[in-house]
């Protein structure tokens, strides 16, 4: 199958980029990234610079890959990352536009590669549990009802790919931040720092330059892991409670 690609080419963070047109011969058994590998081999053969894109596991679980295909983050199939998207979903003659995630908090490094360090900094600001870990605790030493374990696991599926930010008209990181807040907050181990965590991570997301949430739902629709808007409501709840109910620490407190 012959395809026409329009790919965002940008040499580095400082340079101006533009869309470039390429023709590529693919077959339906390839994954989308394998199709790009074919294009890149051709480009290298011609002595041109290959198209840079992020990828690692190519199994849809690492969160490395992702770009926008014809205006949809991770392409037209729901619940998949770009690496798990296959060429059988396209037909000969298709014209595809490939663009990097667009957000000021995700500066383009090169072509389709963006710097998602802002996500790491959001996690570093509160996406952890302060407890001495020691050796692994016994399984089920802390009993957790199944529905809470399930809810936590649903949120913990987030692989931090950034598609939510890319799809959001406000370039908001709310879905990502809420997933990272919720997978800890619904468990007893994460409860003590639940509200402080929400305060810090939401503040960091804004400081990094992500926009606000307008409850539009595009993030949920493109999320390869099915993270739900429900978690954003939960984050808002945590944040509102934290803002209004948080107690101040006092040196006189807790002496008995």
């Amino acid at each position: 199958m012959k395809l026409t690609l329009h790919v965002w080419r940008q040499k580095n963070a400082a340079s101006q980029g533009k869309m470039e047109r390429y023709e590529v011969e693919a077959n339906e058994h390839m994954s989308f990234l394998e199709m790009l590998d074919v294009l890149n081999e051709e480009l290298i053969g011609k002595g041109q610079e290959p198209v840079a894109f992020d990828h690692d596991c190519r199994e849809g679980i690492c969160g490395s890959c992702g770009f926008v295909i014809n205006g949809v983050a991770h392409g037209p199939m729901p619940g998949t990352t770009v690496c798990q998207l296959h060429m059988r979903h396209f037909k000969a003659g298709d014209e595809l536009y490939l663009e990097p995630w667009r957000a000021s908090a995700f500066p383009v490094v090169k072509d389709l590669v963006v710097d998602r360090g802002a996500f790491d900094r959001i996690i570093a600001s509160g996406g952890y549990i302060s407890a001495s870990t020691g050796s692994a605790p016994d399984a089920n030493a802390v009993p957790i009802p199944k529905k809470y374990a399930d809810l936590s696991m649903d949120a913990a599926q987030c692989i931090g790919c950034g598609a939510c930010v890319a799809a959001c008209p406000n370039a908001s990181a709310s879905l990502f931040t809420s997933a990272k807040i919720s997978h800890l907050g619904v468990l007893p181990q994460g409860e003590p720092e639940r509200r402080e965590r929400a305060l810090r991570m939401v503040a960091t997301a804004t400081a990094e330059g992500f926009g606000n949430c307008t409850n539009i739902g595009e993030c949920e629709a493109v999320c390869p892991k099915g993270i739900r808007l429900e978690f954003i409501a939960r984050m808002n709840r945590d944040y509102i409670q934290a803002s209004w109910l948080q107690r101040q620490e006092s040196s006189a407190g807790g002496v008995g």
Partner: peptide, 18 residues
């Protein structure tokens, strides 16, 4: 805030569910 969060838009943008 929205303007600052996405200074460069997409050439193609297709809303999915909104």
């Amino acid at each position: 805030l929205q303007k600052r969060a996405r200074p460069v838009g997409y050439v193609k943008l297709k809303p999915v569910t909104s």
